[in-house]
Lab assay of single mutants.
Amino acid sequence: MSIQHFRVALIPFFAAFCLPVFAHPETLVKVKDAEDQLGARVGYIELDLNSGKILESFRPEERFPMMSTFKVLLCGAVLSRVDAGQEQLGRRIHYSQNDLVEYSPVTEKHLTDGMTVRELCSAAITMSDNTAANLLLTTIGGPKELTAFLHNMGDHVTRLDRWEPELNEAIPNDERDTTMPAAMATTLRKLLTGELLTLASRQQLIDWMEADKVAGPLLRSALPAGWFIADKSGAGERGSRGIIAALGPDGKPSRIVVIYTTGSQATMDERNRQIAEIGASLIKHW
């Protein structure tokens, strides 16, 4: 067993022997301040990774656009098919120029040779490549099948209805392509620590998230040296922004954090800054 596999296998073990965790309302004060600064709703939840206990939450059962955070769930569904012998990570998928959609920095470079399922998941999570996500959605049967996968996990809230990039439209009061912070946090925890996926697939999923290259201005910008984070960000229309993450000190994750916002007129930089400040408060009061 590799060191990384050992780390993920012992996530519940280490967490069980940690000192009790206590909620700190100071972080919620910052979440509410972010709402004021952005002029928009902000949803927040913080779960203990081992027990699933909610440590703090704000608007945990209000719907927010998922945006690209759905790509972690998508690759979880792909990995479940791999575990069941219905898919192979090494299978190569070929596609054409007509398949390319807006923001496809990886797939646009491989029109000639195609990409493997493993490479597509890596591109979808680490670079948020939209064509990679659409190609992977095709392998599982489309958005409705991802929703069905989530329902089978016990998540009857999260739903995907459309493809990239239309799913980022974020129309107010439109339930399409949305989740709730509580539902997303619980589902992410199941994917990373539950028995739904094999140990190898859980490790692969967290490795992809740990290698995320496009979430630097968010929670990662607030992390002290030595902290662990595996995350996936999302951005959408109407001032929408979000991030889902597993993080913790001492090089291992111990909490799940989900943050979503929508309806702001603020710039992307300002949305990023507010999420980073929430992260800084979380870490300060850990």
Rank of each mutant, 00 (worst) to 15 (best):
K30L: 11
S128C: 00
D36E: 13
E26R: 08
S264Y: 04
F64R: 01
G242P: 00
C121E: 01
L247G: 01
Q204Y: 09
D83P: 02
S254Y: 09
K190A: 13
M66H: 05
A84C: 11
S233V: 02
I140R: 02
L167F: 04
I140G: 04
L120S: 03
G263K: 06
G279D: 03
I206K: 12
S57E: 13
H156K: 15
F149N: 06
K30R: 12
K213Y: 09
E164V: 00
G43R: 00
G248R: 02
H94A: 10
L111H: 09
K284Q: 13
T147P: 03
R241G: 05
H110C: 08
E210M: 10
F70C: 08
G85K: 11
A215P: 05
L191Q: 04
G236N: 06
F228R: 07
L111E: 07
G236L: 01
K53R: 14
R92E: 08
A148K: 14
S122V: 12
A23V: 04
D48G: 06
L74V: 11
A230Y: 03
G114P: 03
P12S: 12
K32Q: 15
D48L: 04
V106M: 12
I259P: 00
A124H: 00
K284W: 10
G142R: 03
Q203C: 02
R81Q: 10
P181M: 02
D33T: 15
M66L: 12
K71I: 00
D212M: 03
A200V: 10
F17D: 03
F6C: 10
G279F: 05
P65R: 02
E87A: 07
Y103D: 04
C121Y: 00
E87Q: 08
G154K: 07
N98T: 15
L49S: 07
A266S: 13
L111K: 08
D177S: 02
V42H: 02
L199H: 13
G236F: 01
S233G: 09
T139S: 15
R92Q: 09
K53A: 14
N173T: 14
I259Q: 01
P217F: 07
E195H: 14
L38G: 07
T261S: 09
E277D: 11
E164N: 00
T116C: 07
P217G: 09
M180H: 14
A34N: 03
G90T: 13
L38A: 07
E270S: 11
E87R: 02
A200N: 15
W208L: 06
L191V: 09
C121A: 08
I93K: 04
A211G: 13
L282E: 04
S264M: 05
K53Q: 12
R176A: 08
H156E: 10
P143V: 07
G114V: 03
R220D: 03
T131G: 14
L89Q: 05
A123L: 03
A34L: 08
N130Y: 05
L199T: 10
T198H: 08
S96G: 13
F22C: 13
V214Y: 05
T158R: 00
D36N: 13
D177K: 01
A276F: 12
E145C: 13
S281L: 12
L191I: 11
S80F: 12
S233H: 01
K53W: 09
L136Q: 01
S233N: 01
I229S: 03
C121M: 08
T178D: 02
P25G: 08
E62A: 09
L191W: 05
G239V: 01
W227M: 03
D129L: 00
V214T: 09
L73K: 01
A185S: 08
K190C: 10
V106W: 07
D36T: 15
E119F: 02
F58T: 09
M180W: 11
D207Y: 14
Q4L: 09
M268S: 07
I243L: 10
F64Y: 06
T179Y: 00
M268K: 06
E62S: 08
L74D: 00
Y103S: 06
T261I: 12
G85F: 06
H24N: 15
K30Y: 06
D129W: 00
L100V: 10
D207G: 14
E145N: 15
S221K: 13
V42E: 00
F17T: 11
T131Q: 03
T198G: 12
M67H: 07
V106T: 07
S233Y: 01
E166A: 13
T187G: 08
L19G: 14
L47M: 12
T198V: 07
H156V: 10
A132M: 00
G142S: 06
G239Q: 02
A185Q: 00
P181V: 07
R91P: 01
L135I: 14
H94E: 11
F149M: 11
T262D: 09
G226I: 03
G141A: 06
G114Q: 04
A84L: 10
H285N: 14
N50W: 10
I278S: 00
H110I: 05
T69F: 01
H156W: 11
P217N: 12
Y95P: 04
T139C: 09
L205Q: 02
L188V: 12
V31F: 03
V72G: 03
Q37A: 14
I256Y: 03
P60F: 09
L73I: 15
I259E: 00
V21T: 10
V42D: 00
F17R: 05
A16C: 13
T179R: 00
T69A: 03
E62L: 07
Y44Q: 01
I140A: 07
E210N: 10
G154C: 06
S221A: 13
D269N: 12
N130T: 02
A77P: 01
S254A: 15
R162C: 07
S221M: 11
V21D: 05
Y103E: 03
A170E: 06
Y44K: 00
E108Q: 11
L137A: 06
K32V: 11
S2N: 14
M153R: 07
V42I: 12
E35D: 05
H24Q: 11
I244R: 00
E277Q: 11
D161T: 06
P60Q: 13
M180C: 14
A182P: 06
N152Q: 15
S201G: 09
S240K: 01
R7I: 10
S122R: 13
Y260F: 15
S96Y: 11
I206Y: 15
G142E: 05
A15W: 15
K32M: 15
D250H: 14
E237M: 15
L223Y: 03
N130F: 00
K109W: 09
T187K: 01
T158V: 04
I3A: 08
H156S: 11
A222Q: 14
A215G: 09
P249W: 04
L223T: 13
G142P: 02
I283Y: 15
L10G: 08
L150Y: 08
E56D: 12
V31M: 08
T27I: 08
L79C: 04
T126G: 11
T126V: 10
W286F: 06
R238S: 11
D212F: 02
P249M: 08
E169N: 12
I3H: 12
V78R: 00
N134I: 04
D33H: 15
V257R: 00
G141D: 06
S57F: 09
R92A: 09
D161G: 03
A9Y: 15
L100G: 03
T179M: 01
H5M: 15
L89Y: 07
A215E: 04
Q88Y: 13
V78W: 03
R162K: 07
G90K: 14
M180N: 13
T126M: 09
A84F: 09
L188Q: 03
R238C: 14
V21Y: 05
Q4Y: 14
R118H: 15
L137D: 01
K144E: 15
P60A: 15
R118L: 12
P165G: 06
K109Q: 14
K53T: 14
A225H: 14
Q86F: 10
E108C: 07
K232P: 00
M115S: 04
C75D: 02
G76H: 02
G226K: 11
E108L: 09
G85T: 07
D36H: 11
K190H: 13
I256R: 00
M184L: 07
A222I: 14
N168L: 05
C121S: 04
H94T: 14
N272G: 05
Q88L: 11
D36W: 15
L100D: 02
K190E: 15
R91L: 05
G90L: 10
H94S: 11
L19K: 15
Q97D: 13
P12A: 13
L150H: 04
R202E: 10
